[in-house]
């Protein structure tokens, strides 16, 4: 598929995703070994975007399972189509029960959810299990069979193995730790906030309409903001939105004194905004005294 990590990084760059050498190597190894890849890191650093870009690069259909508390097998793997089963029973009133009882629990009456869909798919797919840390531990344990063997067991049907091994990407915001069993089955990538240089490149590629000066100013400002003790640090997508917002306001460069009112694009908690506004005054006086 890819000859080297560099080759993978270049392909992802074409799709608008900039990846560093270390992450590219780990992702490359995960693809080479055909093992699931667990991507961890704070919200908004591009974990999901990496999976989406990879799906485009490898030209596979993306099947996404968004995890949440209470997610169970019926919503993630399969469910029986009860309406169809009832209909079948009504149509078969004259037929012997023994003849139809097996038929009721066949593949025809099954409703495929994302996990089963990825297993049964005849074409190669990329399965994205997003924000796995939001799901319960029971669900995590259930995934082990899928991650290790690329197969699932349905009591009425037996074990179903994948026809074409899907690329599996799991993402997590670290809100809870995973078991050793799950981690062992995956190759691990930790994505942190990008460096200043990388973020400048990301902004330049994602928002080409912005001036070079504005991009540099915004990225420098955001990297300073990320050092503050805030409840939620600004993500890359929020940086892009913030730069675009300044562009809409026809700012060619970033001045600390003119940011009031635009900070809500960057930060999402009133407490954080208040803290930053306070800090802006200090930064401005530092700038003046320089």
């Amino acid at each position: 598929m890819f000859t080297s990590p560099l080759n993978l990084a270049q392909a992802l760059e074409k799709e608008g995703y900039l990846i560093d050498e270390e992450t590219a190597t780990t992702l490359f190894l995960s693809l080479a070994l055909k093992k699931p890849c667990l991507i961890e890191g704070p919200a908004g650093v591009g974990k999901t975007q990496l999976a989406l870009a990879l799906a485009r690069v490898v030209n596979r259909r993306l099947i996404r399972l968004q995890c949440y508390e209470g997610l169970d097998i019926n919503k993630a793997l399969y469910d029986w189509n009860y309406a169809k089963q009832l209909l079948r029973l009504q149509l078969a009133k004259t037929v012997e029960w023994n003849e139809i009882k097996d038929d009721l629990y066949s593949e025809e009456f099954i409703l495929s959810r994302p996990l089963l869909e990825s297993i049964l798919s005849s074409e190669p797919v990329l399965l994205l299990i997003d924000e796995l840390d939001k799901s319960d531990e029971e669900f995590e344990s259930f995934l082990l069979e899928l991650l290790a063997e690329f197969q699932v067991s349905i009591p009425e049907l037996g074990t179903l193995s994948s026809k074409t091994k899907p690329i599996v990407i799991l993402t997590s915001n670290n809100s809870r730790d995973f078991s050793d069993a799950l981690r062992r089955r995956c190759i691990h990538i930790y994505l942190g906030y990008p460096s200043l240089e990388r973020e400048i490149s990301i902004l330049a590629s994602q928002a080409p309409e912005l001036s070079e000066q504005l991009i540099q100013d915004v990225c420098g400002f955001v990297s300073r903001v990320r050092k503050l003790p805030l409840q939620k640090l600004p993500s890359v997508s929020e940086t892009i939105d913030f730069a675009r917002a300044l562009n809409v306001l026809q700012k060619e460069e970033l001045n600390y004194g003119e940011l009031m009112g635009t900070l809500s694009v960057l930060l999402k908690y009133p407490k954080d905004i208040a803290k930053l506004e306070e800090r802006l005054k200090k930064w401005e006086s530092e700038k003046r005294s320089k």
């Binding site: 270390e22 190597t25 780990t26 190894l29 190759i187 691990h188």
Partner: peptide
């Protein structure tokens, strides 16, 4: 990098 990527999971 190879050894770390494969052996380290946390």
């Amino acid at each position: 990098l190879i050894t770390r990527s494969i052996l380290i999971h946390r």
